[in-house]
Design a protein around this nucleic acid. Sequence first.
DNA 1: ACAGCCATGTAACTTGTTACATGATTTT
DNA 2: AAAATCATGTAACAAGTTACATGGCTGT
Lengths: 171, 171
Amino acid sequence: MIKEGLLGLIALQPMHGYDLKTALDRLFGRTTPVNVGQVYTAIAKLERDGLVRAERVARADRSELKVFHLTENGSAELQRWFREPVEKVALRDEFFLKLTLARRSGQADAGQILRRQRAAHIQTMQELTILKSAETEIEPEIVLLIEGAILHLEADLRWLELLERRMLGTQ
Amino acid sequence: MIKEGLLGLIALQPMHGYDLKTALDRLFGRTTPVNVGQVYTAIAKLERDGLVRAERVARADRSELKVFHLTENGSAELQRWFREPVEKVALRDEFFLKLTLARRSGQADAGQILRRQRAAHIQTMQELTILKSAETEIEPEIVLLIEGAILHLEADLRWLELLERRMLGTQ
DNA sequence: ACAGCCATGTAACTTGTTACATGATTTT
DNA sequence: AAAATCATGTAACAAGTTACATGGCTGT
């Protein structure tokens, strides 16, 4: 995901590594900043794969910046990424695994695990709601990101209810 | 997640690597089987960290099995995993990134990206619904896993509507 | 005889994480 | 003078993917 983000940012405008890091963080509302190192390693891979090319640009003081721009292949790869939908349905859920194993092993109280998960979700939702109204801190677009997270948490809460009724109800 | 699953399975009963692989696959309904190799490397790490211990067990034919059982530390680690809720809110969504970059760069039609994602989700939901009714293929518990995935997809569809109205509506 | 499962791994690679190193410039 | 930011990285590690290697046993 980082690599594609970098490609997209470079498509907006050629940039150097540090710029890319801050731009990417801004895109995500600076709530979960990327490690700088990861940006440099990701760009290195993009360069290795011929998707971006570096240009050394001199600055006023005689230092240099490595400014990256897209190659043809990079542009094509970005287009491919834009075209294909995001795939995220893995039928391998950690909470389901935890609940099932707790129930079968009897090593932990499945009901308690479920209630703790619900409490954690509710708290996260409250934190997100607070973050959402901190309008001075975040750009307006980030509100949409937060609302997405809230919608997903709500869905997970509904699922927890289902699990409670159908997995723990008839015990 | 694999490591914790293995710990939990070993807590049910000491098992060897191949057994663990098939048991883990059964837990997830054999829809997304784990690669065997990953199971062996994961167990190797659990053993290295002193969470499981191997015991060589002779079989009828003079071959041997490596049967793993939990150590004290392994049991404690499993308890810790049972206790702590699953954390999964990263405010870094790939679709949001894609849509934002498409819109800003003008290199792709954001509306089309959104419609494609919606279509993909709807198709996945249909596939999941079919899978859910294939009762001979799957264990009843797996239905819950599938319904969870459907709930999450529904939430994502609602979010897509939000994005359409609020990010693309006023263009 | 051959396919397929049982059983245990190794190798190469991708993505992501945290922490550290180094030096210049800018702000407080 | 010290702290923060700009700028470019390296190292070590974790988790997961796909593919391959090797050998025995089992069912058709």
